[in-house]
Nucleic acid binder design. Structure first.
Lengths: 305, 305
DNA sequence: TTAGGGCGATGCATTTTTTGCACCGCATTG
DNA sequence: CAATGCGGTGCAAAAAATGCATCGCCCTAA
């Protein structure tokens, strides 16, 4: 929409930190850009940027206005989606910020199912840790978030939540693989691989370990869940992960078992959106599909325990 | 804001039902307006109006877009208010849709109090019955509504509610004026003046009368509460009204007493806004003041019973 | 059946707005 | 103290919006 161009320019200036750079980014002369910004500020009644010797920076009024623009633009997209829905073929775009655990199995499946029914809808999936995911929602960069054990929950509206145990993942010939019940102390006594503190799994582990005056001291600490799964094949260590990101491979090389709930309480895997926001049609329906899928997953998983 | 002009034009066309009329309203040539509408429709990707031989009418897509515009414009006002708040002086405008009962005493007092503290804030007060008031909120025409016994309550978010008995108002020499407890049947047996069915007071009366197989058959039925209060001075009939709109005049000519709660249950006087909407600063703070005032009113009124 | 009026759409000249270019003043930096 | 990078401005060119005259259409009333 051309009439929002001024806002896009303001956003670009805010991002670039300088009018000249923003002008280049937006394929405009610095002078033209400058005058649009100044003109808008005059019309709006207040300056939006602090003028510094090295460039410009948003002032609080600018922050407020930029937030308004993002909300407006997002709502316009929703309307466009609804209108497209009205005219027949469903179109739209769904953006998701999610934990790594959803990437190998759950999300690809769900997206494929949705796209089979609605080929006009596109997706963007961004890996974000639990605090980043909430920021994404707040800035309208993502419509939905799926995170394990969210941090703040302000402006975060839960659509659906399912409990997830913390599972131990290891090679099938690992000594612990034959145990009926795996205790946390058993894991901490052997070489283990764990995510960094930013992740919910680690948070639960640290909390549980502290309760029994132990420490999580991983031989490898990583941000990649995939690395965890593959590393344990080499050193024959144990890794930690939530079951929705795990599936026993066909060759039987890897096994996963929940840690005893006596030691580590299950956390919540939460599907959510920004509080109070009306999602675009496509995102809202995909969220409903995800909620159903999560519920089904939970049901079937309970049966196998 | 000049960049929203196209939306204002769309709204004007929707209201006028014809481009030529709208063009006149907006001080523009019909051709210029026509091209802006067509241009926007092309950019937006869909027609917004049905073209009829007699003019144009919004289609569903247009309705959707217009609603988006209203939400956007209202949010922009809120931002402007917040920005003004940021720079010091509080400015803004508060629009209220309310029942007549609030007009003589309650609202004038409250507005005066607020404006004494914030002279930069202006008000608009519109008399609306309970169903109109809810529509006003939904179309962003009013920020706040104060109504007695609202109808639908969809998209209506209650900020504060207080119970209000239905009072009988009559001349001080009326036979009923000396009763300790006034029963509904006493009122229906004598000439009475009542509001029309659109109003909550009448709704409660009708409901209560039906329970005892009686009918409300007013000698004068009116939409004006003021007329009710003045008419009973002439014919010496009884009128019905809620206490917040009543105050015993200094000359003692008029008295009001609640109808027994055995006959007519108290209704709710409700202060509300559109569900989920973030109000402008001024409106939000005025709403808080109103809520407090209503609570105080209720407290002091309970004491006098 | 036809004439008239109101409707939205369009071609063209005019006006208004936006843009690009060149340049200024200023502050920071090596 | 020159060089660089910044926001801001005067002026002419380019682009967009507008007004005017006019078209074709459909409904209505004589």
């Amino acid at each position: 929409m051309r009439y929002l161009q001024t806002f896009r320019l303001i956003e670009a200036v805010a991002r670039a930190g300088s009018m000249r750079k923003a002008a280049e980014d937006m394929n405009l002369t610095a002078s033209a850009l400058n005058r649009r910004i100044n003109g808008f500020e005059e019309e709006f009644g207040t300056e939006l940027f602090e003028r510094l010797p090295s460039g410009v920076r948003l002032n609080p009024a600018g922050e407020l206005l930029l937030h308004h623009y993002r909300a407006t633009a997002s709502d316009l997209e929703r309307v466009q989606g609804q209108v497209a829905d009205l005219t027949g073929e469903r179109r739209g775009h769904v953006s998701i910020a999610c934990s790594q655990a959803l990437l190998p199995y759950f999300l690809p499946e769900q997206i494929a199912i949705y796209r089979a029914a609605h080929p006009g809808v596109t997706f963007s999936v961004n890996i974000r840790d639990r605090s980043q995911a909430e920021q994404e929602l707040a800035s309208y960069s993502s419509d939905l978030a799926i995170v394990f054990e969210p941090v703040y929950l302000v402006d975060f509206e839960v659509i659906h939540a399912i409990p997830q145990t913390v599972d131990v993942v290891m090679r099938s010939d690992h000594p612990l693989a034959s145990h009926d019940e795996i205790r946390l102390r058993d894991c901490l006594d052997v070489p283990h691989v764990a995510p960094t503190h930013r992740f919910g799994v680690r948070h639960l582990l640290d909390f549980a370990a502290r309760r029994s005056s132990r420490h999580v001291s991983p031989v490898v600490e990583t941000e990649s869940f995939e690395l965890i799964r593959h590393y344990v094949l080499h050193e024959n260590a144990v890794g930690f992960q939530i079951p929705i990101g795990l599936r026993t491979p066909g060759d039987g090389s890897l096994v996963s078992k929940p840690i005893s709930e006596r030691d580590v309480a299950p956390g919540n895997l939460i599907l959510g959106q920004m509080r109070g926001r009306t999602l675009p049609v496509a995102s809202a329906r995909f969220a409903m599909q995800l909620a159903t899928a999560l519920k089904d997953y939970q049901t079937s998983h309970e049966l196998t325990i």
